[in-house]
Design a protein around this nucleic acid. Structure first.
Lengths: 129, 129
DNA sequence: GACATTGTCGCAGAGTATGATACAATAGCC
DNA sequence: GGCTATTGTATCATACTCTGCGACAATGTC
């Protein structure tokens, strides 16, 4: 369900956060779903439990998860929000999209290939809405 | 032409690399163009010259720039490549696009807003081709 | 040849990521 | 009610990375 790369320059807990956010955004993790205990997920991935705990905590702080000792961690994301993001956040988001697509172009992707990639991801992400 | 955020968790040199790649990918920096000296760009951005030098070096290693003592740094990118990227790289690229769009959805963006953002960036990036 | 310009190298301090270990709170069972 | 297992949290140590300061090396200009 989740894969991480120990060789990647991006921190493991960031990879976890991104992966979990992706699962939640795509609807594969819905509100109320339980996440594996930190020890189990850490063992499955071959990393330290603190690293998993940190990812859970960051998502908890972001309001996507809820954790409690002895009870575990569940998804409390309410993806649908009344109003869209603020202008500042929109700018940040568009910058990250621009960076990803800019990378794609530098890698030699054609415009058509990039369009199809973006379309496929949008389709996948908003499918469950 | 370039903006960086000292408060951001992503390293300054990575921001520079991403920004420069973006400018090159968008065609605002073309083959043969000279980049500002490391000291000047560092002063403009309020950072250390080594940080700029590192960004230049990484892009040099990536084959986008060429540096020489006393002469400066120029763009040698040849964006158009004979064959598209390998499957592995395509996978990495699509993952970064998916992450950016997943973030967009979690932030509350509608599907239509995401589509328009992606389309606008693709238009901007591939305009000069 | 002297000087300015430009990129590069070595080192140090600060901060961060990751991990080992111990602690605290909840649930389940007798 | 008490014991045990389960689960998240806190503390500390180690290694690594980022950033910056200073010095060096190569090129261009006069």
């Amino acid at each position: 369900m989740l894969t991480i790369s120990l060789a990647s320059p991006v921190p493991i807990h960031d990879q976890l956060v991104a992966g979990l956010r992706g699962l939640i955004a795509a609807g594969q993790l819905a509100e109320g779903d339980e996440l594996p205990p930190v020890r189990q997920l850490a063992a499955d991935l071959g990393i330290n439990l603190n690293t998993v705990a940190r990812a859970y905590r960051e998502l908890t702080d972001a309001g996507l998860l809820a954790s409690a000792r002895g009870r575990g961690t569940i998804v409390i994301a309410t993806v649908e929000r009344a109003s869209g993001p603020k202008a500042e956040e929109r700018k940040r988001i568009e910058a990250s999209i621009a960076a990803a697509l800019g990378d794609a172009k530098l890698a030699g992707l054609t415009r058509e290939a990039a369009e199809s990639m973006a379309a496929r991801q949008i389709e996948r992400l908003w499918k469950h809405v």
